[in-house]
Design a protein around this nucleic acid. Sequence first.
DNA 1: TCCAATTACAACGCATCCGTTGTACAACAT
DNA 2: ATGTTGTACAACGGATGCGTTGTAATTGGA
Lengths: 78, 78
Amino acid sequence: MEKETLLKDLGARIREIRNKKGISQKQLAYSIGKDQQSVQRLEAGNINPTYYYLYEIADGLEVDLEVLIKREGADSTE
Amino acid sequence: MEKETLLKDLGARIREIRNKKGISQKQLAYSIGKDQQSVQRLEAGNINPTYYYLYEIADGLEVDLEVLIKREGADSTE
DNA sequence: TCCAATTACAACGCATCCGTTGTACAACAT
DNA sequence: ATGTTGTACAACGGATGCGTTGTAATTGGA
């Protein structure tokens, strides 16, 4: 799996969950002490977030970290 | 959850899985193109690894990324 | 005793994260 | 037309990731 694809997929999952919750990038960002622009870059797949950053996002979205991580059809040997 | 605690827990899980597989830090590191020292710092909880780094580690350990992430007794609202 | 393997810790340095500011554009309401 | 909200893109800069080198302590085998 290519790094760029991996990050874009992650961003897409985060965006999907956020939209499902009906909150804006700004609301999510502020709820965890960040800026709208930071969330935008994350969702766009432009950054490779740290573990703690992911933990904060999961917290802001009120989901378990695994939910952000889980890729459907994932295969550990790919 | 404190950042330091979170990283130490993550490192401990990675070490546990690696030991269960019976491979050394050096073997794991080399299998994913890294150095023993990098893995040592990760397991010690001294770094806050990126998403892609975790992905590589999971690959080297031949487990799903969720396995590294999953914390027993985890609560998204904590 | 000598040597290899494993793990740990510290320092250097380049690349990257990510907080922040500024800006822009579309959709919508007043 | 003006203001508001949501989203996107770029640049700056301090902080940190992490690859690398060097070193050292421990364990165990020849």
